[in-house]
Simulated scan of single mutants.
Amino acid sequence: MEHRKGKTIVPTMWGTMNLFPVLALVFIVLRLYCRRWLKKATTGYLDDYVLIFSWILMVITSTIGLMLAKHGVGTAIVEGDEIIVEPEVMHALLFWTANLLLFGINAIAFSKVSWFITLIRLVTNRWQKVVLWVLMVFSTAALFAASTLGYYQCHFEPDGTGSKKKRCLNNRFAIIFSFVVAIYSTVLEFALSAVPAYVVWKLPLKRTTKIGIVCATSVGFVSAMMGALRTKAYYDHLFPLGKLPEMYSLGCVIMFAVLEVCTTIIAASIPFLRPLVKKMAKAYDEDDLSWP
């Protein structure tokens, strides 16, 4: 039967997965500029290094995702009423999707670790720091476990005849565990996005300053929304259990995972740009004063 292409997200994948990593890198550079040169901070760089590492993992994820797009990921291939996967594409999908899960989920994990470290530095009460530490360790361990399951879920072993036999872990357990971790990660991200607003609003600052800081940190909600969209696409890709993987929704999973990491990096960088904003505002005022 002749195959035909259905809906596709490939052009959107190419646009977003090339633009947003560059945008995230710009914010990382601005963050480092503000911390190291404007504020001349001499300590507290751990979250910077973790953020840079998550960006590197995200770029690898984006590269693998765009390469998979050439194999049909992001485009629904329809045969009658059934969505199918070309046989020659399956081996490439099994190999590269496993690597994509390893790098992509760890990129999400490390971006969250950086945000956790920043929040731990921001809060003042001991119990708040303890809760954030516990959440960071638990969520990071869960994401690491999900990425490991995704990577080792299927592998090939010699079967004694000169060929290799595919051996897989319990597919149902791996899928359900990864989906539960995705839901947990998204819910946690929404909760963490509200922490800066809660803390800042109790500080003895001007109301306008508080509103400005809260608006700057509210980008974290955008990252949480990307996580929610990734989880929804992951559900469409895998459920009901036992069906063939759906290529369109897999493209959505990859794209929203990259966007989630990029927006987390941006959200984690914006609060550190205040010295640059103040410097620019001061320069603007001086220009006004010197205007004839």
Score class of each variant (00 low, 15 high):
167 R>E: 12
168 C>A: 02
170 N>V: 01
171 N>S: 15
173 F>I: 08
173 F>K: 00
174 A>K: 00
174 A>F: 00
177 F>C: 07
179 F>M: 11
179 F>H: 06
183 I>V: 14
184 Y>S: 01
189 E>I: 07
189 E>R: 11
193 S>P: 08
193 S>L: 05
193 S>D: 14
195 V>G: 03
196 P>E: 04
197 A>G: 09
198 Y>H: 09
198 Y>V: 10
200 V>F: 15
202 K>F: 12
202 K>Q: 15
202 K>L: 05
203 L>W: 13
203 L>Y: 11
203 L>C: 08
204 P>Y: 08
207 R>K: 15
208 T>A: 12
210 K>V: 12
210 K>T: 13
212 G>M: 09
214 V>N: 05
217 T>M: 11
222 V>K: 00
226 M>V: 10
228 A>R: 02
231 T>M: 02
231 T>Y: 01
232 K>H: 13
234 Y>A: 01
234 Y>N: 10
234 Y>R: 06
241 L>I: 15
242 G>T: 06
246 E>N: 09
247 M>W: 11
247 M>A: 07
248 Y>Q: 06
248 Y>V: 02
249 S>T: 15
250 L>I: 09
250 L>D: 02
253 V>E: 07
253 V>N: 12
255 M>A: 08
258 V>Y: 14
260 E>R: 05
261 V>N: 07
264 T>Q: 10
264 T>I: 00
264 T>Y: 05
265 I>C: 08
266 I>P: 04
266 I>V: 08
267 A>W: 09
267 A>E: 10
